Amino acid sequence: MTNTQVTLFQIDNYGPWTVTPEPRREADLQTLQSRLYADISQFVGNRDGYVFFTRFDNMVAVTNGCSFEDHELLQESVGNRYPVTLSLGVATGTNPVQALADATTRIQDAGSAQDKDRRECLEGRVIDDVHRTDEDVQIAHFDVVNATGQYTDELNAFDTFIEIEQGYAELMRHMRYAHNSLSFFVGGDNIIVVCPDLEEADYEEAITHVEEAVDVELQVGVGRGKSAHDAGFAAKHALETCRADGTRVELEW
């Protein structure tokens, strides 16, 4: 049974900060957001977690293996090096959607995202090492079948982007509401999905749904592990099997 630890990172009072004392240069804001994401991703990644940029002012991470002290250290480091601060909500559960909802509620209960008095809150709980197992995290790694041949080498870059994003949007919505999973676009034609206990038939159903809805053909490798890295790396190997053998779903267990 999965037991996913999810952390929500939210920049404190970010909207008002971007226009105080006057609107800031968009290039500067984009640079700040990308650097902040890179730093958080590296910090969590060094502890075998995954971070997803989502909207940049709100980032979602799978942090199995990260302690409460790790979260505090990251918060302190960002506060020392950036002109903004972070509030963090942490929650766990067999259903990653519910875990994220619980993490979100913990931050919301501490104050609005634009509350100038809410600063660097850290609320929630983590999974103690003694309770961690090799099946806590299930990661599915999707990509588009022959994206280079179908899109990249045939269409202009923006039309390719539209096709890939349509596939992602349909998969994201379907996995959220049909399978209680969190899907994240991670570049190229790759989508990483954080799942509860799903089986091969669930992934086959999702692939069929996306193809019928938006005419984008997907393949997926799935892995399990004690951390996001362990599960995600197994999923990468399973996806390589799809590419080599022409299969659509491979489970690495």
Rank of each mutant, 00 (worst) to 15 (best):
D245C: 05
D102W: 12
E250M: 04
C242S: 03
Y151W: 07
Y168T: 10
L198W: 12
T2R: 11
P196F: 02
C195Q: 10
E204N: 08
E69W: 00
G221R: 03
N156I: 04
G167P: 00
T208V: 07
I162D: 15
C242A: 01
A169F: 12
Q30K: 15
A244P: 01
V78L: 08
E154D: 07
E211G: 01
E135N: 13
F161N: 12
R132G: 04
V51T: 15
T208M: 06
E212R: 11
A213W: 03
V78N: 04
S41N: 05
A113T: 07
T63P: 02
N64P: 06
E123N: 11
G79T: 02
N190R: 10
R119W: 09
E250H: 07
N146W: 02
D153C: 05
V145M: 03
R243A: 00
R81M: 10
G15D: 12
C121R: 07
L218V: 05
D215A: 13
Q108C: 13
N58F: 09
V210T: 11
K116I: 09
S77V: 03
R106K: 08
Q30E: 15
R24A: 14
L198N: 14
I40V: 15
D189A: 14
Q42F: 02
E163A: 14
A61H: 13
T92A: 07
Q10I: 10
G93E: 06
V220D: 01
V222T: 05
I127P: 09
V60L: 15
T2L: 05
Q30L: 15
P96D: 08
Y50Q: 08
T20S: 11
S34W: 11
G45P: 03
C66D: 01
I139W: 08
D245I: 04
F158W: 10
R47T: 04
V44Q: 02
F9M: 02
E212I: 05
E120C: 14
F56N: 14
G111K: 13
A238K: 00
T133M: 01
A140M: 12
V19W: 03
N64Y: 03
Q108S: 15
E22Q: 09
T7Y: 12
T247Y: 03
D129Y: 00
C195S: 13
W17H: 02
E250R: 07
Q114A: 07
H179R: 14
L73F: 02
